[in-house]
């Protein structure tokens, strides 16, 4: 699975460019984080990538072929942000809906679809919730349901819009760990909009910084650093490597 955007440009009003000539390539088994300030265009970028918005110029290629949109392709799944929902469906039914791209146009889900949904729910750890109504779930549980739904569809690219947004930091860790595990064990690529440079550091291979006047895309190791945080967020920060303390992690601190 290879997804490419070439010379992608997009503007809402024809005057201010939100996306200016973006070129990037995402291979299989890759996790990409998208970082940027509020309003800079992270969600716009995702929507252009998916094809919900049409690029003003530039193209999107999936596995080498030019495509208008990838939102409805079976290689791609979308995990929305889990707000409070008024959907009265049971968890099992919602996860089952992730199989739709694989079900022929006038058919119903079959045994195999129920099977795959069950496996997806078990992998994410929510099978015990399968008969609960989605309206009764917490934000974290609902986010897991959306993730299970994306996995049930057996897609190779999962796009997540701020999955940790409404979660407390324990649930944030749980969902990020799950994304990392699933990606590494199944070779699924993920593109994640996130507000947290720390989360980006902990799981992503590549990072995309989006700014008003430009962007930068590269290996997280190389480009997620204090200079770029200053360029794209206007904030001074320090990234500390805790190896010296025997902890194999990096942490991110904002300075006044």
């Amino acid at each position: 699975m290879k997804l490419e955007m070439k010379n992608g440009c997009f503007s809402y009003d024809g005057k201010t460019n939100i996306l200016s000539n973006i070129n990037l390539e995402i291979d299989h088994n890759t996790i990409v984080s998208v970082l940027g300030q509020n309003g800079v265009g992270k969600t716009t970028f995702l929507k252009c990538l998916l094809g919900i918005f049409k690029l003003n110029s530039g193209e999107i290629y999936l596995d080498g072929s030019k495509v208008d949109q990838i939102l409805n392709k079976k290689e791609v799944a979308y995990v929305p942000q889990a707000g409070k929902t008024n959907l009265p469906y049971r968890v099992n039914d919602l996860v089952l809906m992730g199989r739709t791209k694989l079900i022929p146009p006038f058919s119903m889900p079959k045994k195999i679809d129920e099977e795959k949904s069950k496996i997806a729910m078990e992998e994410v750890g929510i099978y015990h919730l399968k008969d609960r109504k989605c309206t009764e779930l917490s934000g974290g549980q609902l986010q897991m349901v959306y993730l299970a739904r994306a996995i049930a569809g057996e897609s190779q690219l999962i796009i997540l819009d701020e999955p940790e947004a409404h979660l407390d930091f324990k649930n944030q860790k749980i969902i990020l760990d799950k994304i990392l595990n699933l990606s590494k064990s199944k070779g699924i690529s993920c593109i994640i909009n996130t507000h947290s440079p720390e989360n980006a550091m902990s799981i992503s291979d590549y990072t995309l910084f989006l700014g008003k006047d430009g962007y930068e895309y590269g290996l997280t190791e190389e480009i997620l650093n204090e200079e770029n945080i200053e360029v794209y967020f206007g904030m001074k920060s320090k990234i500390l490597d805790l190896k010296s303390m025997g902890i194999n992690k990096k942490t991110f601190v904002l300075l006044d």
Binding site: L71, N72, F106
Partner: peptide, 23 residues
């Protein structure tokens, strides 16, 4: 009757329906 499964998906909203493969 034939469409009843896909009506479930339509009830999620247009964008989500598209993302699940239903026009």
């Amino acid at each position: 009757f034939i469409l009843r499964w896909r009506i479930n998906i339509l009830s999620l909203g247009d964008e989500e329906a598209k993302s699940l493969g239903v026009n």
